[in-house]
Design a protein around this nucleic acid. Structure first.
Lengths: 217, 217
DNA sequence: CGGTGTGAATCTATTCACAGCA
DNA sequence: TGCTGTGAATAGATTCACACCG
């Protein structure tokens, strides 16, 4: 079966599950073991996994290696994506030297900042460009995702430039609600909002497991 | 009306809406204006707001100041929460000097690290303690939330210590699925997971607006 | 009128319960 | 026997549609 559309919450859980499996050193796992670790009911786990194609479990449960593989394929995590950083302040420039992207299949290929001076001074393993070259560079290198690290006051403006340049997804670090067309995906990763979400869950005694940042989201 | 339980997704949207209103310089706003900015249907917006108590809108829409106030009250964002940082590496020690917490009602009162040496060397505006004092300090200062900034390999262990010490919520920066009792809230804020969530949305052509970080969630 | 507020209807997701397989 | 896989049942969230209010 393959009804061609995995429910949103299921996608988040699968992403989470993948992260969990990656740190697990065991060959097989059952749905109820997963329940013990994650808190999701075993029925939910089985249903989620059933959305994936080409997996079959024996009586010992699922074969972990295969399961990871299938999740990655199904969620489109295998094809390397090109990414860029917009805004090279403290945070943005720290990401320039972060080595974790590559191992995960995200290729950092450019950094942008409106200050030409900053671009010239910064030492960087990837080429840096002034903001006005954004559209050209993004289309030339077929960059799909951007880490938006500019100050809050500029976030919306920068997002609009990215959209105009054809970006497909934005990871937003500014505490701002971006207004973008529905074809562009946004995930928000702001620390204080994470704290707020926790605080809200403490009071209201009800919460959704967010899972994905930007769930910081 | 007040059925005593706001749906999880509605809470996330309200949190998001609050963030949006905070950057808005206007006195009144209607549900369809909110739709234009956020993409949520105006009916959803009205329903979400209807979960709040003590708000009444005129023909001009909602009074923004009042709306912010009511959201904050209802979601428990007014009572200051005490927070701590666990793991004082690059990321954790950067947060020690972050001034944004206080303005949002989060009082940073302690930092923890297992390296006594590091604690002695670091210059910090708040007191630092070795890990073994965690239980004592957390209960003495009634710390409710923790920013977990330790390496992935130690995250689960540290989380367990926090739980044992009585923490109520964890903002997790490590790329690890934490296993904690259901009474403890967790939000995940890991950059690469945010990218993964975006990538998954690009392929599967279906997404949930995460909004709140963690959703790493 | 141009908005809100809300029951009722619809759509979506989760859980149940059990058949089928190793 | 112990687990998966899945249609059917339930629970939950969103949207609709319209009465009502300033």
């Amino acid at each position: 079966m393959w009804m061609n559309q995995i429910p949103g919450p299921a996608i988040e859980r699968l992403l989470h599950l993948l992260r969990f499996l990656e740190r697990l050193d065991v060959q097989f796992i059952t749905s109820s073991e997963i329940e013990d670790y994650t808190g999701w009911s075993s029925a939910t786990v089985r249903k989620d996994i059933s959305y994936l194609e080409g997996i079959s479990a024996g009586t010992a449960g699922y074969e972990v290696g295969r399961l990871k593989e299938v999740i990655r394929e199904t969620l489109g995590l295998t094809e390397g994506r090109r990414i860029c950083i917009v805004g090279l302040g403290r945070l943005g420039s720290a990401f320039l030297n972060f080595t974790g992207f590559e191992q995960e299949g995200f290729h950092l290929v450019a950094g942008f900042d409106s200050s030409v001076n900053r671009i010239e001074i910064l030492r960087s393993p990837v080429p840096l460009y002034p903001t006005y070259k954004m559209a050209e560079v993004i289309s030339r290198f077929q960059i799909e995702l951007a880490l938006l690290c500019v100050p809050a006051s500029e976030a919306q403006r920068s997002a609009e430039k990215l959209v105009a340049a054809g970006i497909r997804g934005i990871l937003n670090f500014a505490p701002v609600v971006l207004t973008v067309p529905p074809t562009v995906a946004v995930e928000n990763l702001y620390v204080v909002d994470g704290l707020r979400a926790l605080a809200a869950r403490l009071s209201s005694k009800k919460g959704t497991e967010p899972g994905i940042p930007g769930k910081n989201e």
